[in-house]
Every structure is written in structure tokens, then in C-alpha cells.
Amino acid sequence: MSEGDGETTGVVKKFLFVNRKAPYGTIYALEALEVVLISAAFDQDVSLAFLDDGVYQLVSANNPAGIGMKNFSHTYRALDDYDITKLYVERESLTERGVSEDAFIVPVTVVSRAEMGHIMAAQDVVLSF
């Protein structure tokens, strides 16, 4: 373990973390968030995509105390401190689920399904959760 200050001068690649799972039914969402935070130490060009049930991860009213789970919704608000600011949410996924982007805990860019496809196509590395 080392505590570098993150000042590296390697190659910068475009990384996309694809979030497609609801937050509490499985461990995927929490694991993705942890990997994203760790990846910030590598100074790469990181984007996050939220589509399908992944859009539920950002709902600010999430409150899992009653089912005995940690409320990691708050942690999305720390992404800005980690210089991760590109969060894309798919509009069609919101519409299908009756979710409003006003309900989100952090500012996001809402894009169409077609635009999401282009964002995916433009990456060097895609990690799916």
C-alpha cells in the first residue's frame, strides 16, 4: 500500500463504468462505486453511465436503513472531490421507470439512448456492472 499523491505521467485512457443494476438487490452498484473511487487514483479520463435499472442508484430518497444496508447514495456526492464529474444518465431508462432527474442526488447529464451508444463507442475501456 502506498499513499501517492496521484501525480502520474502515464498514458491517459478513456474509461467508462457502465451501471445497469438497481442499488440494493445485488452488490454490483456498491462494488462499481468502490472501483470507480479507486480508479480515480490513476488519473484516467473517467466517465460513468447510468442506464436501465442503474438509474435507480442516484435517487436521493434512497434510504436502506430499514433493510439493514449502508446508504451509499451519499458517496456519489464525493465523486466531485475525486475529480469524477462526467455522469451520463439515459433518458429512455428514466421514462420507462417513471423516474425524474430532479430526484437525483448529484448533477448529471441526461442523454438519449442513441447518444449513450456513441459515448460507449468512444471509450478505450468499458467496465460493466
Binding site: E3, G4, D5, G6, L37, A40, A41, K70, N71, F72, H74, T75, R77, A78, D81, Y82
Partner: peptide, 15 residues
């Protein structure tokens, strides 16, 4: 308390 994580060192330093 606010973010439910302990920050990485460079995040801590900046904050």
C-alpha cells in the same frame, strides 16, 4: 458522516 467513505489522501489534502 457526510459521504459514508474515508477519503483518499489527495482528496483529503484538497478538502
Amino acid at each position: 458522516n457526510e459521504f459514508q467513505i474515508a477519503p483518499a489522501v489527495r482528496v483529503l489534502t484538497k478538502a
